[in-house]
Structures are given as structure tokens and as C-alpha cells.
């Protein structure tokens, strides 16, 4: 049943969100063309027509940034709006009478939200690459210089530090995933509590509970750092052992990476625990306190 829920939730999100991603790609193409033309205009020429062209192409270049910002906001908005309508409004009558468990409903909402976050991130990544590749070439149509530089950087980094460079990349990726899950579940929980507590001003109550939850998490994290002494806080002393004067990148890497590990893992475990708490509370409220008007 979870698969069916995911399929349906994904389709229902895609119906609205797919056009936004196509719009981002369309804006990227416009911006790329605009920037490539703008780049090649003769700026010493003050002819009116060239000035106008400069203005238009400059404007075209800006479209991509606007489209990316607008689409990102819209993706988040639609994900939460679908959640709210599906669970806390009239459609809740359908959702909660389906032969599925409450946790399946929550998992489906979380997984489809993550899928769409990933899709929109990939689209932004593709857009930026299209822009860099085709919009920024100085003498050539395609600009590969940026990639050559990046490749060189990674090649050098790997040749000095070696395979261990994979670890910080993995750790950052893991952290981004956990933070995203936590942000999504945070809003879900606020929407659930707001929808249950208030009959008339559900959205307003949800916004209030969003901040209440935020304060609760801050208090917990403060308590945690107290319990662990000051070890949760990164201070200048944490980096005392770093041989800044050395030219040896590997030993700098080892000390910095090593020094970061306790903070990283403490905070990651804390974040995972917060995610679990958000999920368990959401489940509890939906299962035991749900009173659809």
C-alpha cells in the first residue's frame, strides 16, 4: 500500500510541479542566450540599438535567477499545501478512510517531498551547468574552462589527500539529507498540531506551532551542549593542534577533519533524534487526536 500511496502522492505533486521545472529550464535557455549575446556586445559602442540590446539581454540573464528562486519557493509551498489539504481538510476524509496505516501516510508524504526536493535540486544543477557551459564562453561557443579548473582542483586534492577525501563529501551529503528531512517533518508536525488544536485558524495556529517547535528544539540543543560541556561549540582552541605553518596539506586535512568529527557526529545524531521525534509526534497526533470537523 505504501507504494500506491507514493505513486498517487507523487503524481499529484508532479501535476503542479513539473511545469515549474520546465519553466526553470526554459528560463535557463533564455538566460544563457541573453548572457552569451550580452557578453559579445561591444560596450564601447553607444549606439541606441546596441544599448537596447544590452538592456534586453541583461534582463534575459536575470530571468534564470528569478525562475530558480520562484520555483524553489513554489516546490516547498506545494509540498506543504498538498500535505495540509490531503490530511487536515476535506480530502482527509478520503485519506484517513483508505485501508492504510497512519505511518504509511506519513512515510509517503515524506518520501514524495524528498523526491521532489531532489528533482528540483537536480534541475537547478543542470540549469547552472547549461548556463556556465553555453552562456559564459569568451571565444568559443562552449565554455569548458570552468570544468577544467574544477577537475584540476579535485585532481590535486585527491592526489595529496587521497581516497580519504570521500569522507567529508559523504558526511556533508548525509548532513544535508538529514537536515532536509528534519525541515520537512518540522513543518508537517506544525501543520498537524495547528490543524488539530484550532478549528478556525488552522494555518495561523500552524505558523505559531512552527515557532514553538523551533524554540523547543533550540532549548534541547542548548541543554545538550551544556551536558557535553563546551565540546559542542567550535572554538579557536579546537583548532590549536592545526599546523597552519606547514605546507603539508595532508596533515592540515587530518587535524581539521579529526577536530570536526565529534561535533559532526554529535549534531548528526541529535538531528536524527529530532527527525524521529517529529515523526513519532506526528504519528501520535494523527492516530489519537485527529478530529476532522
Amino acid at each position: 500500500m505504501l507504494g500506491k500511496l507514493i505513486k498517487h502522492d507523487f503524481n499529484s505533486l508532479s501535476r503542479v510541479l513539473l511545469p515549474t521545472q520546465i519553466a526553470v529550464l526554459g528560463a535557463t535557455i533564455l538566460a544563457t542566450i541573453g548572457f552569451a549575446i550580452n557578453f559579445r556586445l561591444d560596450y564601447s559602442n553607444n549606439d541606441g540599438l546596441v544599448g537596447l540590446l544590452r538592456l534586453i539581454t541583461g534582463f534575459m540573464s536575470g530571468i534564470m535567477v528569478l525562475a530558480i528562486i520562484a520555483a524553489s519557493i513554489l516546490v516547498a509551498f506545494i509540498i506543504f499545501q498538498r500535505f495540509y489539504k490531503n490530511l487536515m481538510c476535506s480530502e482527509g476524509y478520503l485519506t484517513f478512510t483508505l485501508p492504510v496505516t497512519t505511518s504509511e501516510i506519513l512515510w509517503s508524504k515524506l518520501i514524495t517531498a524528498m523526491l521532489w526536493t531532489i528533482i528540483s535540486s537536480v534541475v537547478i544543477f543542470i540549469s547552472l551547468n547549461i548556463f556556465v557551459l553555453f552562456g559564459t564562453g569568451q571565444d568559443t561557443f562552449v565554455n569548458t574552462e570552468a570544468y577544467r579548473q574544477m577537475g584540476k582542483f579535485f585532481h590535486e586534492a585527491f592526489s595529496t589527500i587521497g581516497g580519504r577525501l570521500v569522507w567529508p563529501i559523504l558526511e556533508v551529503t548525509l548532513f544535508v539529507i538529514v537536515s532536509t528531512v528534519s525541515s520537512i517533518l518540522h513543518v508537517y508536525l506544525a501543520l498537524i498540531i495547528g490543524g488539530i488544536v484550532s478549528q478556525k485558524h488552522k494555518i495561523l495556529a500552524s505558523i505559531g506551532f512552527y515557532f514553538v517547535i523551533n524554540i523547543a528544539v533550540s532549548i534541547l540543543s542548548t541543554i545538550l551542549s551544556y551536558c557535553l560541556g563546551t565540546s559542542m561549540v567550535v572554538t579557536a582552541e579546537s583548532f590549536d593542534g592545526i599546523p597552519w605553518n606547514t605546507q603539508d596539506a595532508l596533515s592540515v586535512y587530518n587535524v581539521v577533519f579529526g577536530a570536526m568529527q565529534p561535533y559532526y557526529w554529535t549534531y548528526l545524531v541529535f538531528s536524527v533524534a529530532i527527525c524521529a521525534a517529529f515523526f513519532i509526534l506526528s504519528h501520535y497526533f494523527l492516530k489519537n487526536k485527529l478530529n476532522l470537523e
Binding site: E91, T97, L98
Partner: peptide, 21 residues
């Protein structure tokens, strides 16, 4: 009320509950 009961009950609410799109 739970997953077993929901497979057995066919419910018509007094309101529109199907997504309008």
C-alpha cells in the same frame, strides 16, 4: 477502527472529499 476495519467499511461522507483536480 484501523486498517482492518477500513478495508471493510465503505464510507460516504456528507461533503465532497475527492480532490477537485
Amino acid at each position: 477502527p484501523g486498517i482492518e476495519s477500513k478495508t471493510l467499511v465503505s464510507y460516504l461522507p456528507e461533503r465532497t472529499y475527492l480532490p477537485d483536480w
